[in-house]
Computed example of a mutant assay.
Amino acid sequence: MSLLIRLFAVASLLGVGIVHLVGWFDWARYTSVVGPLFLLNVAASVVLAIAVVVWRHWLVGVATLGFGAATLGAYLMSLTVGFFGVQEQFRTALEVWGVVTDVACILAGAMLLLPHQWRQRQASSTN
């Protein structure tokens, strides 16, 4: 089960990175703040995906969940009040996939944390 959760986390993290890389090539590279943030998002998604594979620590789950939440939060800001001058309208397939992969990261991060919480409960109940 842990392997499936980790694979889901890696896929969702890399999905977010791909969405942002495609967005960067499509339009974001022409914006002064959002363009570099998209590239940072791509790099962070790869680093986190590697961390999910090689590091069995609860911080990876927190980082995955937080990454998905931060990315989704930035997108929701761009839909409502704007994000560094970018105003999205949820019209493209890329935006849909962005939301799907962000939510998947949040779920994957939470799922990565579940085994840690279970082990903590088991350890405290035996003492």
Rank of each mutant, 00 (worst) to 15 (best):
S124I: 15
Q122R: 15
R91L: 11
V19A: 08
Y30R: 14
H57W: 15
L72R: 10
F38N: 05
I5N: 03
L4Q: 11
S2F: 06
A51Y: 06
G82M: 02
L65D: 02
V86T: 05
V34R: 00
V99R: 00
F38R: 00
A104F: 06
V52A: 02
N127P: 03
T101W: 10
S124K: 14
Q117S: 08
F90M: 15
D102K: 01
L7Y: 15
A108G: 05
L113N: 01
Q87M: 12
S12G: 02
V22R: 02
L3N: 12
V46T: 01
E88I: 05
M77T: 08
L65S: 07
R56K: 15
S12T: 02
L112Y: 05
H116D: 12
V42G: 00
A9F: 03
L79W: 04
L21N: 02
A70F: 06
R119C: 05
A9W: 08
V46M: 11
F8Q: 14
A69G: 09
G109Y: 04
Q87K: 14
Y75H: 14
A44M: 10
L76E: 12
I50E: 08
L72Q: 09
G109E: 01
V33I: 09
A51N: 08
P36E: 00
L79P: 07
L72I: 12
W27K: 12
G85E: 06
W58M: 08
R91H: 13
V103R: 00
T92R: 05
G66M: 04
A69D: 08
Q122V: 13
L114C: 12
A28I: 04
H57T: 11
G68Y: 06
Y30V: 14
A110N: 03
F84Q: 10
S45K: 00
M111N: 10
V33G: 01
F8R: 02
Y75G: 14
M77Q: 13
V19L: 09
L48F: 07
E88W: 09
H57L: 11
L94H: 09
V19D: 03
L21P: 02
N41L: 11
T126F: 09
L14I: 07
I50H: 06
S2G: 15
V62T: 11
I18M: 10
N127I: 14
L40C: 13
L114T: 13
Q122C: 10
Q87H: 14
L4C: 12
N41H: 07
A63G: 11
A93H: 12
Q120V: 07
S124M: 09
S125Q: 15
V42S: 03
L7E: 13
W58Y: 13
I5R: 07
A44H: 05
A63T: 00
L107Y: 03
Q87N: 14
S45G: 05
N41E: 11
M77R: 06
A9K: 06
